[in-house]
Amino acid sequence: MADYEWLKPIREMVGREYGRIIAWDEVNPAMVRQWCEVMGVENPLYTDAEYAHQSEFGELVAPPSMLQSWCEAGFYRDSYAPGSTEDNPYTVLKLIEAEGYPSVVAVNSELTFERYVKMGEKLYYTTRFDAISEEKVTALGTGFFVTLIMSYFSINDSGEDDKVGELLFRVFKFKPANPVARPEKTESGLPKIKRPKPGISDDTRFFWEGCEQGELRIQHCKACDKLQHPPAPVCMYCHSFELDYQLASGKGQLYSFVVMHYPEVPPFDHPNPIGLIELEEGVRLSAQLIDVDKDQLQIGMALEVRFETFDDEMTLPLFAPVSAAAESLT
C-alpha cells in the first residue's frame, strides 16, 4: 500500500530517542509491600527481609514486573519528576491521531530483566520510537502498529548508569471500525436532591390530593361536627369513624414557630423557619414559612396558604405573611 504523504515525516522519526523520565521515588519497601498486597503476590523475597537476606541478593528486591511502576507520572498525568525530559515520547501517537486515528489499544507488553532492583535504587527510562507498521485493517479498525522501546536504568554515583531492564510496548492507533455510541453526558453527574416526600396512607390521602388541587382540606367528624388535624383514622373527640373533610380558607395566624439553623439539609434553604399555624377554622397545622425574614416573624401575625409544587411531583401547603396588596384584594 502506498504511504500517505503525511506519514513521511513520521517514518523519518523512526529510531528517534527521547530523554530520561525519572522515577519520583526510589525503589522502596512500602510501595513494594502495598503492590504485593493488592496483587496477591506472596513471595517473601520482596517483603520478608530475613528471607531476602539469605538470597543471592542479600537484601529485599522489588518484584520484577513492577519495573514500569517506578517511573509512572502518578496522580498528575504527564507530570514527571524534576530532571525528566520535556519531550513527549508519545508524540508520534499524537501526530497519527491528528490524521484521523483517534483510538488506541495496547497490543504487546514485553518486559525483559537484566537484573532485579534493590531498595534505594533510583530508576529512569529512555524511549526509542522503534517502528511503525504499514496501515493495517483489523477487526477493531484501520490503523498503525507503533512500537516503542523503553530502557530502564539505575542511577549510579559513578556515572556509569546500569541498565536493569527493557520494555517493548506496542500499540495499535486506529480509526474504529464500529465507533462506540457514547452515552449521553448528563449536565452534572451528581444526583438531584429532592424534597422528602410525606408518607401517605388511606387516612391522609385526601389531604395531599387536596393540595394538588389547591385545596386545604381539614378532616371533619360527621358525628360530632368537629375538625381535627393531622388526619387520623378516628375522631379524637368522639371516636367515630364517620369522617370526611371540609375546605379551610387557608387563612390563619402564627401560633408558634421554630427556625432551623442546623444541620443544613439539602434541598432546604437555611435558616429555615417552620410555623405552627392556627387556621381561622380553629385547628393548627405545621408548615414551612416562606417570603418572610426570620427576624420579622411574630406570634399572631396573619398568614395565608401558598401551594407550591416541588420536583414536579409533590404539592405542599406553605404559609406566607398576608401581604398588604393581597389584603386589599379581599
Binding site: V41, N43, P64, M66, L111, Y116
Partner: peptide, 28 residues
C-alpha cells in the same frame, strides 16, 4: 501493569521464591 503483576503471581506461585524472571512478554 496489574495484568503483568497477576501473570508474575501465577507463575511465581508455581515456580517458588528462588525462580528468577528473565522476561515477561504478554499480548493483550
Amino acid at each position: 501493569l496489574t495484568t503483568n503483576a497477576l501473570v508474575q503471581r501465577f507463575v511465581e506461585k508455581w515456580a517458588g521464591p528462588q525462580a528468577r524472571f528473565k522476561d515477561l512478554k504478554i499480548k493483550l
